[in-house]
Amino acid sequence: MSFNVIDTERQDWARGWAALKKFTERELHARVPYGHREGATPLGQWVAEQRRAYGAGQMTGQRARRLEQLGMVWSVADERFQENLEAARAYYEQFWSLCAPRSATALSRPVGQWLSNLRRPGALDGHPDWETALKEIDEHWNPSWPADWQRHYAALRELVRDESHADIVLPGVTVHGMDIGKWLARQRQHTTWTSLMDRQRELLEAIGVTPLPPEQKTPAKPPKAVSGAFEKGVAALAQYKAREGHLKAPRGHTETIVVGGQEHTVKLGVFLSNTKSRRAKLTPERLAALAALGLEWAA
């Protein structure tokens, strides 16, 4: 009597591999739906079992290599991430930011909703490589500030990329439907600028954006008696500081003030230069008036 030992497990694996090969040659990928049958072979279930065995360390290296030659994907989640990442990269090339609106699409994929889901707390736990891949495309893909702010900033950054300053972007300049000029003017306002995070201000300053002087809550009042040249000079200086936020008037600058309903032109730059050079001869009252406006040399 003789016996033939039949290794049914090896035969089943060979049949499964052959069915997967047939599937990949036809479909050009190895992403088999779980319920799919290839002829009489429940191929979807067989592929799922191979993934389980691979993850549990129960698969030989030879079998793993043979499956990988057919394009076997061990982690479906990783594969889907890579596919969506390609769509995200395409979106960034067009819009310069990964802070996409939820409705945004790219390569026929809902990339906006996908990115929004990944920004949720804990969404990337256990996937540090995913976050690294996203940061390689856009360092600020998940900023600490609103995504809408980052979209506007990215558009402004591209507008001034080859310019020396951002002053050329005026209200009415739009990009992708966003009024970047209007947004920029709002960022430069003192109240908005001071409310930004340090990193936001650093990003704006890096492309040449500076804040406007703080607004004067109440306009500076000229001295009650504005009769002589000195008093008019002080009034003009107070008016200049209220408007410009500083006292560094150029020597050739003139300032027009209204006194008693009449306009008077004051050579403010000359006034500042002359009073500073003659400060030793000024009365204590006049020095006090100049010091009150912030002239350190008069204090």
Score class of each variant (00 low, 15 high):
S2K: 14
S2T: 14
S2A: 15
D7L: 06
T8V: 12
R10Q: 14
D12R: 13
A19P: 02
A19C: 10
L20S: 03
K21T: 06
F23S: 00
F23L: 02
E25P: 01
H29V: 05
A30V: 00
R31N: 04
P33F: 11
H36W: 15
E38D: 09
P42F: 14
L43V: 07
W46I: 07
Q50S: 11
A56F: 08
G61T: 07
R63C: 00
R65T: 11
L67G: 00
G71L: 03
W74H: 02
R80Y: 10
R80E: 12
F81W: 11
Q82H: 04
A87W: 04
R89S: 13
E93T: 11
L98M: 09
R102H: 06
S116A: 14
A123H: 07
E136M: 11
E136W: 10
I137S: 08
E139L: 15
A147N: 01
W149T: 08
R151D: 02
R157M: 08
V160F: 06
D162F: 09
D162C: 00
D167A: 07
V175I: 05
M178V: 00
L184P: 02
R186D: 14
Q189I: 02
H190S: 10
T192R: 13
T194V: 12
D198H: 04
R201S: 08
L203R: 05
L203Y: 06
L203D: 13
L204C: 01
G208N: 01
G208I: 00
T210N: 07
K217A: 13
K217T: 10
K224A: 15
V226Q: 07
V226P: 00
A229M: 09
K232W: 01
G233T: 05
V234G: 03
A236I: 01
A238V: 02
K241S: 00
K241F: 10
K241L: 09
G245L: 14
R251Q: 11
G252H: 14
H253R: 15
H253M: 09
E255T: 09
G261W: 01
V266W: 10
K267Q: 12
G269N: 04
V270D: 13
L272A: 04
K276N: 11
R278H: 15
R279Y: 07
L287I: 06
E296A: 14
A298F: 14
